[in-house]
Simulated assay, not measured.
Amino acid sequence: MQTHLPTIRQLRYLVAVAEHLHFGRAAEACLATQSTLSAGLQELESLLGVTLVERTKRRVLMTPLGDEVVVRAREVLRGAEDIADLARAAGQPLSGPLRLGVIPTIAPFLLPQVLPDLRRSYPGLKLTLREDLTARLLERLAGGGLDVALLALPFDAPDMEMVPLATDPFLLACRPDHPLAAKDAITGADLAGAELLLLEEGHCLREHALAACSLPGPRRGDGILGTSLGTLVQMVASGMGVTLVPELAVRAGLLRGTDLLTRPLLRGGHRLLGLAWRKSSPRGAEFRLLGRVLFP
């Protein structure tokens, strides 16, 4: 006897409702009318013989079984997307949709330089960018919300393929009248006695900068923390201390408009930049090609 299975469209409707808990917003996300989405969900529930969504006049809730089905529906949808990606990559690499996540200490300093060439070389690529912190990008990557992410390595994610692409040295940034400005190169001991300004917790650059100088991490709440590299630079320019900045950002003009000086680290501390994607993705060769375009 033939078994009737849910369709991709029905599963997509279900996942959208679970994410938005609102029929109107879910329909909008699926580029469908609300009546079409509602009918599709009713057909799915009739097909399975169960209730997946609780509907009231005031709110929408998933049933416990509905939550379990959504988990499996996401896996099915990712598998279907992988099939389409595999076929597309085999025909023409770096074409069609590609969702790229980038951390904020890379995105504004690298992408403006490389995206024009990427568009010229691969006009069929429909690139969507998302800038966020590493932890949230990895969460989206694992959940299928992103295809690939440009991050600072390493990180603990056993289900991800990681490919190093480039080293990015750290530089000390300080005012010309700061005592460290007189040094040709900076040691960890120099920084141990300085007011070192860092990004707030959650930014991987914070840990990588401390590791580059062999400095222990400060206790939560100690020191002065910035929300972005631009904020740190302004804090240093106002005389609040010194900071460590990646060379990539300095070359892109991070210090422009200030009189700040940079000094290299004596032991050449750096961070490692690279791409990460799900090991199950069929687009590994395509992502490696993307890496060569980003860092030729």
Rank of each mutant, 00 (worst) to 15 (best):
A209G: 03
R175T: 02
R292P: 03
D184T: 10
S238W: 08
P97M: 02
A152S: 14
E43R: 15
L260T: 00
R278F: 06
S280G: 11
L275N: 03
V114T: 08
K279H: 09
D85T: 01
A142T: 15
H208G: 12
I186V: 02
A182E: 15
S121Q: 05
L266G: 10
S238E: 09
L265A: 07
V163N: 11
L137E: 00
V70N: 04
L111D: 06
D85R: 05
L172R: 01
D67P: 06
T231K: 02
L255W: 00
G124N: 13
L94S: 06
A142R: 15
L31K: 11
D147H: 09
L260M: 01
L14C: 13
R58S: 15
E207W: 05
P158V: 07
S38R: 07
Q234H: 07
L180H: 00
L111M: 10
A149V: 01
F109E: 14
V17P: 00
R72Q: 04
L37H: 14
C30V: 03
P264F: 03
H208S: 14
L100K: 01
S280I: 12
F170D: 02
G223H: 10
E43H: 10
A157Y: 02
G230W: 09
E200V: 13
L77M: 07
L111Y: 06
M1K: 12
A152W: 12
E43T: 15
P6T: 10
